[in-house]
Simulated assay, not measured.
Amino acid sequence: MMGAGETFAAIAFAGVLIALIVAGTEMFRRFMNYKERQLEMSEQSARSTAQNKAIEDRLRALESIVTDGGYDVASKIEALRDTRKVEDQGSGVPLGLSRENA
């Protein structure tokens, strides 16, 4: 049989053991949450890097169009469109009719 002192020591030991298990479980849970946040942040960083690269590629394409003369070609095409509009307006013939019917 156990005496009163031994019973108290066993109960104290069990209490300390339970406290250590609870504390260890809590520490493990916090550690796992921390690792999950790190993983989410690294994934978000990778997505941001990919988006930045795509934007940089688009910007380089636009810069090459503007600096390589492609912009000049587009401007000339627009100028031709503007010239045709002015010529069409001066003809005085409604759309769908020929000069003979007007």
Rank of each mutant, 00 (worst) to 15 (best):
R29S: 12
V93I: 11
G90I: 15
S75C: 04
R58W: 08
D82H: 12
K53S: 04
V73G: 01
F31D: 01
M41C: 07
A19M: 07
K35P: 00
A10K: 13
K53L: 06
L80C: 09
M32W: 06
G69P: 00
L59D: 07
M2C: 09
L59K: 13
Q89L: 10
R30C: 10
G90S: 14
D82W: 07
M2H: 03
E87D: 12
A61C: 06
G24D: 14
M41L: 15
R60H: 11
A46D: 12
M32G: 00
G69D: 05
R29K: 10
L59Q: 11
L20R: 07
I21L: 13
L59T: 13
R81E: 15
R84D: 03
Q89C: 08
E6Y: 03
M32A: 08
M32S: 03
T49H: 07
E87I: 14
G69I: 05
E40Y: 14
A19N: 01
K76I: 15
G70S: 07
G24H: 13
M41W: 11
T83K: 14
T67I: 06
A4L: 09
G92H: 02
L62E: 15
E6P: 00
L62A: 15
R99D: 13
G24R: 15
V73T: 10
S91T: 11
F28N: 01
T83H: 14
M2L: 12
R84A: 04
S98F: 03
R99C: 06
E100P: 00
A79V: 11
E26P: 01
M2V: 11
R60N: 08
G5E: 15
N33E: 09
A23D: 07
I55Q: 14
G3E: 00
I21M: 05
G3D: 05
I77V: 10
F31C: 02
T25M: 06
V66K: 03
L95D: 05
S91W: 03
A61G: 05
F31I: 02
Q89Y: 09
Y34F: 01
G90W: 03
S48D: 11
M27W: 00
E43N: 04
P94K: 04
I18Y: 05
S48T: 12
S48E: 14
A61H: 06
Y34H: 01
M1Y: 09
N52I: 15
P94Y: 10
V93M: 04
S42K: 08
L17H: 08
L95F: 05
D88P: 00
Y71W: 07
A61R: 02
D68A: 15
G90F: 12
K76H: 09
L39E: 10
A14T: 01
D88I: 12
T25D: 12
G69F: 01
L62I: 14
M1L: 09
V22W: 04
V73W: 10
S48G: 12
E100Y: 04
R29V: 10
L80S: 03
V22N: 03
S64F: 02
L97K: 04
V22S: 05
R30T: 03
K85P: 01
